[in-house]
Design a protein around this nucleic acid. Sequence first.
DNA 1: GCCAACTTGGACCGATCATTCCAGCATGAC
DNA 2: GTCATGCTGGAATGATCGGTCCAAGTTGGC
Lengths: 190, 190
Amino acid sequence: MAGRKQFDVDEALRRAMHVFWRWGYSETSIDRLTEGTGLGRSSLYGTFGDKSALFRKSLHRYAQTYHPRYEQALAGAHPTPSAVVAAYLQVTLNRIADPTVPDGCLLTLSAAQFPALDAAGQATVRAMIDGLRAMLEQSLRAAGADEHAAAEWALCTLATNKSLAVLSRAGFSGEDLATVAAAAARIPQR
Amino acid sequence: MAGRKQFDVDEALRRAMHVFWRWGYSETSIDRLTEGTGLGRSSLYGTFGDKSALFRKSLHRYAQTYHPRYEQALAGAHPTPSAVVAAYLQVTLNRIADPTVPDGCLLTLSAAQFPALDAAGQATVRAMIDGLRAMLEQSLRAAGADEHAAAEWALCTLATNKSLAVLSRAGFSGEDLATVAAAAARIPQR
DNA sequence: GCCAACTTGGACCGATCATTCCAGCATGAC
DNA sequence: GTCATGCTGGAATGATCGGTCCAAGTTGGC
């Protein structure tokens, strides 16, 4: 039960990062961190310091892991804006499929961010996010076929994506989001 | 000091909406709400119910105010995706300039969302948001001149915008964000 | 002028939060 | 085998949270 460290510090930090990632800062309690990392309170404090220190370490870890990919995608030899967006989408998709990120991508934050939403509201947000993911995948398939069409598709996708992020962040209720989804569905899809 | 109501319910709800808007749900304490609305605890609870009820009323108020504009922009007779995005940007810009929304738009949420970030980190986020706002305005000016160029511009803008939203939401530190800003600056601007 | 109705400010409550502390014990060195 | 090291689980602490309650006081109707 005691003696020498019984966990891998780096792995614990990775898990803590995902807890912050999923729940945001203020919705992440120490109990949630102990549950997510498997460490006890004492080990957590002894290893990483207090909550905000652990959060900052998580940020750094996140930046180290994912930032170079965006950097590479955005700073590469992409002559046109549409190519830049395509590269950006590619990175995002890779992250969605990243096996080191359980249960999806950054976007899944939205559904957990507003505890005051009822279950139906959160389910709606989750469903819209799943739909968005499908759209992203479809837009990338289109990119392989025809670049101009891909650019147009990415345009629509990003616009809808942004709408969803803004709206869910602002905490729209389930029925509000459903209405927006209906509007988004009317965007021409080719 | 007492007797009959000494405040305007609708105005109080508008102010409460902005408090939630700026701080998010869990970072909004009752004390912050009383400070933001000017009402006492009793008046707040007596008029709107508990915190989550007030949040839901704020959502509804928000939806009533802003949703029709997006609905109109996204569902109107826009034949091409780029036109849809242009309309979307127009609505966003209008909201940025909306005098009923003090201190800017939804995007300003980001800077307040992570209390564990130091002052420099939050200032960096704020500066990037200001830069983003300038980019949006510039993209709209371009839209007036040449529609295709505008579409390309909007593409870049949204991509960068989305990056910022994702990154700041994930809680990047100030220097991380500065690096991303440098990368974004390398996106061709015409 | 009087009374019922209603609002208001502030004290109060239990729950939960982040954080600290300590006794107990497994470990590695000798 | 012995001992110092330092990690571990759990109890304890003070602050803050959302929420409740009530006495004090003001209003409008009569």
